Simulated assay, not measured.
Amino acid sequence: MVRAFPVVMPSGQKYWTVLDDDLEVVPVADEWLRNLRFGRDRAELTTKAYASCVALYLRWCRSTRREWTTGGRDLGLFMVWLKYTPAPRDGMESVVQPGPGAAPVRGERRINRVLVAVRGLLSYAVSVREAPRAVLGQIYELADSRDLPAEAQGEDGGLFYRLRPVHSLREPETQMDRADDAELVAMFVACRSARDRLIVLLVGRVGLRRGQVAGLRRSDVHLLPDSRALGCDYPGAHVHVQRRENRNGAWSKSRHVWVAPLDFVVVSAFDLYYEERYRLLGAGGCDFLLVNLFRAPLGEPVSPEAIGELLERLSDRAGLGRRVGAHRARRAFASNVADAGGTPDEVQAVLGQKSLDSQAPYLFPDPKRVRAAIDRVPSPRGLRGPEGER
């Protein structure tokens, strides 16, 4: 069975590849995934997701007796297969091949994500002459900018051409939202350790992504009002967020190093966590900030996946009725900064973003503030005419 598989390089760096039925690496897929990881500086988890998608495509090609290098012409059939064919269980392929009329097993969003990976693999195969150039015409069509949203057409309004995927599904619109302050408080109260409370604050009151939280080292944390003795001129308590190769798979999405300021609530949570960590581990443990305290291997760094699982458990334990993950908490943080009077450049700085345009998806104004803005607009009855008449 074709499958995704993790690879550890001699340097300790990791990426994911694809193995065929004989447990041999699929050469072109492996080259493409290594190029994504090390040539284009993508996260290990990105290669894991792409490798899993490519494995589905190669599995379909094998089951339908197609050459994967030319299967792009039949991606429409592959989409039907994706929609109705369940994943194999216990390493065995499904005997039943359900079709239309059966309950879908993958939604539009998942199918589109798989197609993104397949197009990437096929495009790379064409570039290294492992697939015919005609494949590009089967998976892309030439389109112009007139069908793009206005914000994506550029300020000059000029016409330009682009490659548009031939195969894609219209995804249902999902309402992006933020975590409510009450939800984050309930999750905080539901925590059973100082470490878990610190994690909730780092995502909800500092706005860090879970990969950034898991990748923090103790040396990144500066809690003193004056850190010049540490060679740092940034005022007040803060953490330095930077991209590294981490053995727990943590990865900062931001390529540049940035500083996240901390308030007194978060600083207090750090103090309580350090006390708990020393009580349970003594001076042991690694340099990672957040480590295993209650299960083996003790002292080893917490993974991003473990943080995601913790937030899911806390959502259930707090009775929220939905999962409040790190991204919803990050949007809550950004919105709270804006609602408190933070300017766009301040929101940009605390989110660690390089562009002002990048903060838009994170801002969800408080409905009370929006209501107040509308109420401040004067009524036409209160306006005077040009001659002073009402």
Rank of each mutant, 00 (worst) to 15 (best):
E155R: 13
Q353K: 10
K368G: 13
E67K: 12
D366M: 08
G385T: 09
E276S: 09
R295F: 09
S252W: 05
D22N: 14
V239E: 05
R209N: 00
E155N: 08
P88T: 01
V25N: 06
G204E: 03
I374E: 03
K83S: 00
Y124K: 05
V7F: 10
R390H: 10
A125F: 01
E346I: 12
R328K: 15
Y362D: 08
D287I: 00
H327P: 04
D271N: 13
A338W: 11
A260Q: 06
L23S: 14
G39K: 04
Y15G: 03
G249F: 10
G308N: 09
P378Y: 08
V370L: 15
D22E: 15
Y278M: 08
R113G: 01
V96I: 11
A134W: 02
A117K: 06
D366S: 11
V239S: 09
R210C: 02
S145H: 09
V337P: 02
D147W: 04
L298G: 04
A334Y: 10
D22H: 13
G107C: 06
R218H: 08
S145L: 11
E151L: 06
S94R: 12
A152L: 15
P225N: 08
G12C: 05
A373L: 14
M176S: 11
L148Y: 08
L159N: 09
D345W: 12
D181I: 07
E309T: 02
R106H: 12
H327T: 04
P100R: 02
L159C: 04
Y57A: 01
G385D: 14
